[in-house]
């Protein structure tokens, strides 16, 4: 019983994290892309903002998303004493 509850909580946390990070991924890619023409007047480091996002910003966000997921899930695994392999 205890095991099932532990698993349920672990999976729920994982799903919440995954959903949140996918939302960030979606906004950085598709929402920014959809409104690209409206954001054209804003500039960043000399770039028009949509161009910057497509050429650099979104890529850095992707790296951060994947890095944060690896780090956070590693901690979650340890919290639930579920880290595999020998310690």
């Amino acid at each position: 019983m205890q095991l099932a509850e532990k698993r349920r909580r672990y999976w729920k946390k994982n799903l919440r994290l995954t959903g949140m990070l996918l939302a960030i991924w979606f906004i950085a890619t598709f929402v920014v892309g959809w409104f690209a023409r409206d954001l054209q007047s804003l500039t960043f480091l000399g770039f028009p903002l949509p161009f910057y996002m497509g050429a650099q910003g979104a890529l850095l966000i992707y790296v951060a998303v994947v890095g944060y997921y690896a780090w956070r899930m590693d901690r979650l695994d340890r919290e639930y004493a579920a880290q595999e392999g020998e310690r």
């Binding site: 990070l21 979104a58 890529l59 997921y69 690896a70």
Partner: peptide, 24 residues
């Protein structure tokens, strides 16, 4: 120009899906 960035975005952003949905 800008329209070519579809390849840059697609070929990097896909790894978010790999990381979050499949690799582990």
């Amino acid at each position: 120009g800008y329209d070519g960035l579809a390849f840059v975005l697609g070929w990097t952003g896909g790894f978010c899906l790999v990381a979050l949905l499949l690799a582990p």
